[in-house]
Amino acid sequence: MREEKHIFTMLVDNEPGVLSRVVGLFSGRGFNIDSLVVAETVDPKVSRITLVSKADQPVIEQIEKQLNKLINVIKIRDLTGPEAVKREMALICVNAKSDHRAEILRIVDIFRCKVVDVGLEHYIIEVTGTGEKVAALLQLLKPMGIKKIARTGPLALLREPS
């Protein structure tokens, strides 16, 4: 069966050990985690976990049910479809020797991202957008030499009914 990427978002009790229950479930049952983002919501007792996993349909169904079964998971949704907005973020440290500096800034401008740190030989660029956008930017910066990179997995939020 074909493997698909799914984005799950869940509200969980903001308590010690909850993340390890979620992660332990994945390792214990042999499911894989592509990415994981966790932070508090406006209610300090509740956190939101956004998790991406790649698996075939029956396994995706199991993942959702198993997560739901965890006592600390209040609510879970599969937000893979277009009904949700998705964004990723990356911090990219790229080589910026003098003959490349202008080109890099042009790319930054086109991608509407930001330079957040400047040195004699590097820029740190902050980008947010869809996974494709981040990937496209990386593709363009690659020839200059990427020194290091930190990426989040995607975040997803259901659109409000219009």
Partner: peptide, 14 residues
């Protein structure tokens, strides 16, 4: 023990 028994209890508490 909460860490150890997480996968073999329905739920556990400290």
């Amino acid at each position: 023990i909460v860490g150890i028994t997480r996968p073999c209890t329905k739920h556990n508490y400290l």
